[in-house]
């Protein structure tokens, strides 16, 4: 049994964005502008734990993206993944979640023995959270989303806990599965010194469209969703009203008056 973690390279959480004529760009004055999608760090950690605690033979990191996504994959190797694979092709550019799901499904079919596929719950750029279920559908595997614990893997059965709005649901299902994980599932480890050295020496194979048996359309032309009209959030109208007063009680009474006027209490 192999466990595969699907990661994505995204802008860092501290990145500052600008939009010029519809083109989005970002920079990060304090650090790297691109990182492993923060939600995926939990997925990477969990994949390594499936190997450590549930007897997977290998933990493999898989990314679809531009060639510079190798950087994010090196982070996965440094954390402890055994192998990393980049899926990259100019024809993939502009894929929607469905195109992405077709590409990832084709790549997963090529990995012999993959039984557990782990995603972060969503990526912080598109923020759709659709891809895990869609990959599962393209593979014909079972999707289980918002997983907060992998309790047991026994034979062909996996027991999972999901974190939903109204509580925690425990489910059992059959392998193979595609799961998405939430932050509660673990505390991601830091890459070790040895891990970083190993990652820097590693050659990461790139699979192109020609290496995969993709069924269905990919890339911008096949995209069923259009969100090309991107713009900065309009500045909030008006500025803050600082409540003044001679005492805390006075300020508080004035604030409460305002909140009743706004009809939010």
């Amino acid at each position: 049994m192999k466990v595969v973690v699907c990661t994505k390279q995204t802008p860092s959480t501290t990145a500052v964005f600008s939009v010029n004529n519809g083109a989005v760009s970002w920079e990060d004055s304090g650090g790297k502008p691109n990182v492993v999608n923060p939600w995926d760090e939990y997925a990477v950690e969990e994949a390594i734990r499936v190997k450590e605690n549930h007897g997977a033979s290998q933990a493999i990191a898989l990314t679809m993206g531009t060639p510079d996504s190798q950087e994010a994959l090196k982070t996965c190797l440094a954390m402890g993944c055994d192998e990393a694979i980049l899926v990259s092709d100019p024809s993939f550019a502009g894929s929607d979640t469905l195109g992405t799901a077709r590409i990832l499904a084709a790549a997963l079919e090529k990995i012999d023995g993959a039984k557990v596929v782990i995603f972060g719950k969503q990526a912080i750029d598109g923020d759709t959270g659709l891809t895990p279920v869609q990959v599962a559908r393209k593979l014909g595997w079972t999707p289980v989303t918002y997983v907060s614990a992998i309790k047991e893997i026994k034979g062909h059965t996996i027991t999972l806990e999901r974190l939903l709005e109204d509580g925690k649901e425990t489910v059992t299902t059959d392998l193979p599965v595609v799961i998405s994980v939430v932050k509660e599932i673990n505390e991601p480890r830091y890459p070790s010194f040895m891990g970083i050295r190993k990652a820097n020496r590693a050659t990461i194979p790139t699979w192109s469209a020609a290496d995969l048996n993709i069924s269905g359309g990919v890339g911008a032309g096949a995209s069923q969703a259009d969100w090309s009209h991107v713009y900065a959030i309009p500045a909030r109208e008006g500025s803050v009203e600082i409540i003044e007063g001679d005492s805390v009680e006075e300020k508080v009474a004035a604030l409460v008056d305002k909140l009743f006027e706004e009809k939010v209490i």
Binding site: T13, I124, S223, Q224, I233
Partner: peptide
């Protein structure tokens, strides 16, 4: 209208199907 890039930008989006 939907927030993208973790709520740092907005997009007007539609589907084609």
């Amino acid at each position: 209208t939907r927030p993208v890039y973790a709520g740092k930008l907005l997009a007007t989006a539609f589907t084609k199907g």
